[in-house]
Design a protein around this nucleic acid. Structure first.
Length: 357
RNA sequence: AUCCAGGGGUACAC
């Protein structure tokens, strides 16, 4: 059931549910608890509730699992709160589930209120608050929590590093990375993504080399996300050869990976190569998205491929149903402007429904 | 090992 939950494999979950009823295993509380959790993760609160209601005897985990089904995405926090206050059992996990819900709906004040009331906070409570603050740009508030929490683990460090990286503060991200190193902590792939992203923002070739070899030497798992981050980093640090090598290591590149490579090639003026990669993406049947087209139009703009640019601009809306955003307009205006087609550029600006930036 | 926290790609000009 746990595997079904993490794979969102509802059909297998339902099949197992059926077998449990035949074998009588549903009367073993942990099994029904796992069922509640599986349904909550795969299908949402209603089937969870149904299993919960059919139980003869429930424990705190049963309540937490059904609470999680409501709170997880931060929708239904009203329901979650009602359940939370009338639950007969409650532990730190119940409180944390409420904090997660409030964080995920952007209600940081409520998250903080729950956190403040929580009698016995654990490392998850603290880390969830740190993530909440950084997600909404309050990096310094997050850092205060990070510095005052009684104990930190890998996830807390990663949350703080990623928070800095995502908020455009790469120096501080790397400073924490150095501290982890100095403390001889073992880093994992998720931590490294924040570190790679920070290095990409700094854009130094030496740093990029160091990071690459660090990943090799420490046996960091080279999954698609790591490799995509490396493509981006090498491109931003001016080493397109390394960027391409990283891309070639990706077994099944997705839209993120293609976009990172296309954008890197575009930035360096390799318009034709960028369009080549875009074409390969079509052949491999990977659906380009909003961001892919920023790279594609950017490639046309930087390489002066105006006719291609106009073609992709139309195709974007017609074939892929992507509504142009400010970035796409900017690429087009830039492209037309650079090649002296100023009246067309002007017409395009005037055609933007909303106020142009 | 029945329930809670960390993940990559985003335009132009200066």
């Amino acid at each position: 059931l746990n595997s079904c939950a993490s794979l969102f494999s509802t059909l297998h979950g339902i099949e197992i549910h059926g077998r449990l009823l035949k074998t009588g295993f549903q009367f073993y509380i942990p099994v029904s608890n796992a069922l509640i959790d599986m349904y909550g993760k795969c299908c949402g609160p209603s089937p969870s509730h149904q299993v919960f209601n059919e139980m003869i005897e429930r424990d705190v985990v049963s309540y937490n699992a059904v609470l999680g089904s409501h709170a997880r995405f931060g929708k239904e926090m009203e329901v979650a709160k009602r359940l939370f206050v009338r639950m007969p059992f409650r532990n730190v996990i119940s409180w944390n589930a409420m904090i997660v819900g409030y964080v995920n709906c952007g209600d940081l004040d409520s998250a903080r209120a729950v956190f403040n009331e929580l009698p016995a906070r654990n490392v998850v409570s603290w880390t969830t608050m740190i993530v909440g603050y950084t997600k909404y740009g309050f990096v310094d508030e997050a850092r205060v929590l990070f510095d005052t929490m009684p104990e930190r683990n890998l996830v807390s460090w990663t949350a703080m590093i990623t928070g800095y990286a995502q908020n455009g503060r790469p120096m501080e991200a790397l400073e924490l990375f150095r501290k982890m190193e100095a403390a001889r902590m073992k880093l994992d792939a998720i931590t490294m993504i924040g570190v790679i992203s920070a290095s990409a923002q700094l854009g130094g070739g030496e740093l990029a080399k160091f990071i690459s070899s660090y990943i090799e030497e420490n046996g960091i798992e080279k999954n698609t996300k790591i490799l995509t981050a490396l493509v981006d980093m090498h491109a931003k640090c001016g080493n397109m050869d390394e960027a391409c090598c990283a891309f070639d290591e990706i077994l099944e590149p997705d839209a993120f990976a293609y976009s990172a490579l296309i954008m890197g090639l575009a930035t360096h003026g390799y318009g034709v190569r960028a369009l080549d990669i875009f074409n390969r993406m079509r052949v491999e049947d990977i659906k380009p998205d909003y961001i892919t087209f920023i790279g594609v139009l950017n490639a046309c703009s930087h390489a002066g491929l105006v006719e291609d640019g106009l073609k992709f601009w139309e195709s974007m809306v017609r074939d892929y149903g992507i509504q142009p955003g400010t970035e796409h307009y900017a690429c087009m205006v830039d492209m037309l402007g650079r090649t002296g087609r100023l009246d067309e550029a002007y017409k395009l600006v005037k055609s933007i429904g909303v106020k142009p930036s």
